[in-house]
Design a protein around this nucleic acid. Structure first.
Length: 843
DNA sequence: GACCTGCTGCGGGATG
């Protein structure tokens, strides 16, 4: 016979006793968590990865909620994890405490990976504790028996909440939690998150604005110090070409790897991962089998194999992308290296946390600059880490596509009455300010398909029945909706397979489409020859000889964060005052000194712009340090303003530090720039931005995602999803129909709003302009590209020239610049604009 | 010796 402890009992079967029985002394933050849970609070536990936080929350919830298992009924405790790959390990960790504190309880895992047999077994008798994903939770809510099934949920844990917070997946979780509270108002919610700059917003999003006010915030102390150091290049170039691979750093990285048993090498792109894996193998052929690569386009089986190798310590090093940012605890990883810019402080901390996982070991991350200016970034990143300055993760507001999906989900899961559901939806942070009009529009959209689709029965997805409860009237629509649940919209992928059928992974359709049969590319660490493309598969064989192309995936954009960019400017300002602290700044001093000599160093008070006249025309370089997305918007906007004054054509280039505008005709920037940089009010800025960019085209692309989430597109069957080209075609059709017959369609507005806010980052652009207006504009006339200007010059040329032509031109230019830099300053100024023939000048 | 740039994440359910 099993005896369940009464809620709140502290004697036998308590969290404390369980830990002591294992010889562990409970930590303060664990006791605080148990106390807060015992007192019935909701809460957020801020802690870095590690088993300590799992025991804090799980033991606390078991202690409070364990009760004798019921023969029928549904899960009592839900554990939400953003990664299905984490679900198994999590379940394993939860098992032992549960066996002790809730005898007789069973633990289940339910994700898309759960085998059919297990699913049916779960449905015969639901496990008391269930580990699941946000998507699978929504699928539970979409079951006809959901109200009965989920009314017994006493508590929910959301793990890695910071990962979900700023995305539509996070909004999906908010809506699901509101639904659970609707059935069981007492449901206790706890989140676990990495350190955040906006903990209050994170709590409001997780718990709802009302409950968040009284929520417990428990902070686990930083268990171990974090060290940020840098591999210095043997020689720092004054004229870096905006490279990103870091080829020069291969020997230093090899040396670093020789000294340690296991390491993770993080890169920023998948193709860079492939490149580095090859470079390491070329340098150390004897490491074959001891190193591996890992990224999101590799076959899951390959990825599992690599993860296993890391866990067992069989691998010396793995080159990876963010695909290993989260995941199983790889205890043996000794070192973490970050190749190229870390882009943000939170990212860097996350990656640093992958090392020194054992207690007492410090976390250490070594930055490997691939470009001279990244030395400044490295010093700045360390400043920000030491000062604890981390990027906020803003929660999304009111994405109507997610709400539309939720309406159909709830209609399936027992149905709803509009007034009651509106009240429930408004308890969430995302929809707290949802207007009555938007709500009515969403209701109408799921009921009739809105103004333009009412003729099509498949868009009459939800109907009120005789008693006024809104339900999905037809089994086919129900099935279609279940297949469509979720907010992740991926690009079209082609499977890469050997002729014998072995799967290697996936590449984007666009990349494969550019390859012809017989051409070679590097993928999954091998050089492959494309034999043929058929359906959605690229058939390949091993290739020898031919120079390969490394696949380029489209991927997301990762602009330098404001937090890190500000830290970079602070370092440049110090340099402007002659302060070069630390090894990185000492190494990059010659480059910065030259920038100061030929032009100026940007500081917080000084906005530096440079004007250069040469054979191409008139170049303007500006360095706002606002990240590449903002610079792209700013460059287009500035060019548009300049063209309003007088018809002109510009070529544009941007990077994370600045932007370039080139015009064949002369432009009097000194007179015009201060005027054109005057920030307009937000509404004008928005209107001018939309006018200056191909905003309609951008919004149209964005709309594909929204149409998918809102359930307008026919979903494929799992395992044979439809190719994106087809998705795009139908999304384009809806776009055209709505624009023409239903211009007030809220989803069109949402597409435009998402482009403005997320792709162009209007807020950040607006802030940047305000800040620039407060700075002193220092317009320098320069005789030749400065160290800050050269990367932008290269960026622009790259689009026009083949890489050979570009390399040759660059080599000439850099040789010229080097000579000018070495010549005494007076002589350099004297040579001015004369375009010297390098051979003459050398003689 | 060479500069090729952009991550991650999820996913039916009922019946035999």
């Amino acid at each position: 016979m099993t005896r369940a402890p009464r809620p709140g009992t502290r004697a036998l079967g308590s969290a404390e006793a369980w830990m002591r029985a294992r010889g562990w002394v409970p930590l303060d933050f664990q006791r605080q968590t148990w106390a807060a849970i015992g007192a019935g609070h909701h809460g957020l536990l801020h802690a870095t990865t590690g088993a300590g936080k799992t025991y804090a929350v799980w033991l606390g919830l078991l202690q409070r909620h364990a009760a004798p298992p019921a023969a029928t009924g549904g899960p009592r405790l839900l554990w939400i994890t953003p990664l299905r790959a984490l679900a198994g390990d999590t379940a394993a960790a939860l098992q032992a405490p549960m066996a002790a504190l809730a005898p007789g309880w069973r633990l289940g895992v339910r994700t898309g990976d759960t085998p059919d047999a297990e699913r049916t077994a779960q449905q015969r008798r639901w496990p008391e504790a269930l580990v699941t994903t946000p998507e699978s939770l929504s699928l539970l809510i979409a079951r006809a028996d959901a109200p009965a099934l989920l009314a017994q949920v006493a508590a929910v844990v959301v793990d890695e909440w910071h990962e979900l917070l700023a995305s539509k997946r996070g909004v999906q979780v908010q809506l699901a939690l509101a639904r659970l509270r609707g059935w069981q108002p007492a449901v206790q919610v706890w989140g676990m998150s990495a350190t955040l700059a906006n903990p209050d917003e994170a709590a409001a999003a997780l718990l709802g604005p009302t409950a968040a006010a009284s929520a417990a915030h428990v902070r686990a102390p930083q268990a171990k110090p974090i060290t940020v150091d840098t591999l210095l290049p043997a020689q720092v170039q004054r004229f870096a070409w905006a490279g990103h691979l870091g080829a020069a750093m291969v020997p230093a990285v090899v040396a670093a790897l020789e000294g340690c048993r296991s390491a993770l090498l993080f890169t920023n792109t998948r193709s860079q991962t492939e490149w580095w894996y090859q470079a390491l193998l070329d340098a150390r052929p004897d490491w074959a089998g001891q190193i591996a690569l890992h990224h999101g386009s590799l076959d899951p089986q390959v990825r599992r194999w690599v993860e296993h190798g890391l866990k067992t310590g069989a691998l010396r090093a793995v080159v990876c992308t963010s695909s290993l940012d989260l995941g199983v605890d790889f205890a043996p990883v000794e070192r973490v290296l970050q190749i190229g810019s870390p882009k943000g402080v939170a990212r860097l901390l996350q990656r640093a946390g992958r090392s020194g996982h054992a207690p007492g070991q410090p976390s250490r991350v070594t930055l490997v600059p691939t470009h001279a200016l990244e030395l400044v970034e490295a010093a700045a990143a360390r400043d920000a880490v030491q000062a604890g300055r981390i990027e906020p993760r803003p929660a999304l507001r009111a994405p109507l596509d997610v709400l539309v999906q939720h309406l159909v989900t709830v209609a399936l899961g027992g149905g709803f009455r509009p007034e009651a559901l509106l009240a429930e939806v408004r308890t969430t942070h995302a929809y707290a300010d949802l207007s009555d009009q938007d709500w009515r529009w969403c209701l109408d959209f799921v009921r009739h398909g809105g103004a333009s689709l009412h003729a099509y029965p498949e868009y009459r997805r939800v109907q009120p029945d005789a008693s006024g409860v809104w339900r999905v009237p037809d089994a086919r629509l129900a099935r279609r909706h279940r297949l469509n649940i979720g907010t992740i919209v991926a690009d079209a992928q082609l499977e890469v397979r050997y002729l014998n059928g072995a799967r290697l992974g996936t590449v984007e359709e666009g990349f494969a489409a550019r390859l012809r049969p017989g051409e070679c590319f590097v993928f999954a660490g091998r050089t492959l020859e494309l034999v043929r493309l058929h359906e959605l598969t690229a058939w390949v064989r091993d290739a020898r000889g031919q120079p390969p192309r490394v696949p380029r995936w489209q991927g997301g954009r990762m602009p330098l964060s404001t937090t890190l960019a500000d830290a970079v400017v602070a370092r440049l300002e110090a340099a402007a005052h002659g302060v070069f602290d630390g090894p990185e700044m000492a190494a990059v001093q010659p480059l910065l000194a030259l920038q100061g000599r030929w032009s100026r160093l940007p500081t917080r008070q000084h906005l530096v712009a440079e004007v250069l006249h040469d054979r191409e025309g008139c170049h303007l370089f500006v360095y706002p340090f606002a990240g590449r997305d903002v610079h792209a918007g700013l460059a287009a906007w500035l060019a548009w303003r300049a063209a309003q004054a007088q018809p002109r054509t510009f070529s544009l280039a941007v990077n994370d530090y600045g932007l370039e505008l080139l015009c064949a005709q002369p432009v009097d920037w000194a007179a015009a720039l201060p005027r054109w940089l005057q920030p307009p009010d937000r509404a004008t800025l928005q209107a001018e931005l939309l006018a200056s960019l191909h905003a309609a085209e951008l919004a149209k692309r964005r709309f594909r995602e929204i149409a998918r989430v809102a359930g307008l597109l026919e979903p494929g069957h799992p395992g044979q999803r439809r190719p994106a080209r087809q998705l795009q075609a139908s999304a384009a059709l809806f776009w055209a129909v709505f624009c023409r017959h239903d211009p007030d369609n809220r989803l069109l507005h949402q597409a435009q709003a998402e482009v403005l806010m997320q792709e162009l980052d209007l807020d950040r652009l607006h802030d940047a302009l305000q800040r620039m207006a407060r700075q002193t504009l220092c317009l320098q006339t320069i005789a030749r590209p400065t160290p800050l200007a050269l990367p932008l010059w290269v960026e622009r040329q790259r689009e026009r020239l083949s890489s050979e032509t570009l390399a040759a031109r660059l080599q000439r230019l850099v040789a010229q610049l080097e000579r000018a830099a070495d010549a005494p300053a007076r002589a350099a100024r004297g040579r001015g604009r004369r375009r010297a023939n390098p051979t003459q000048e050398a003689a």
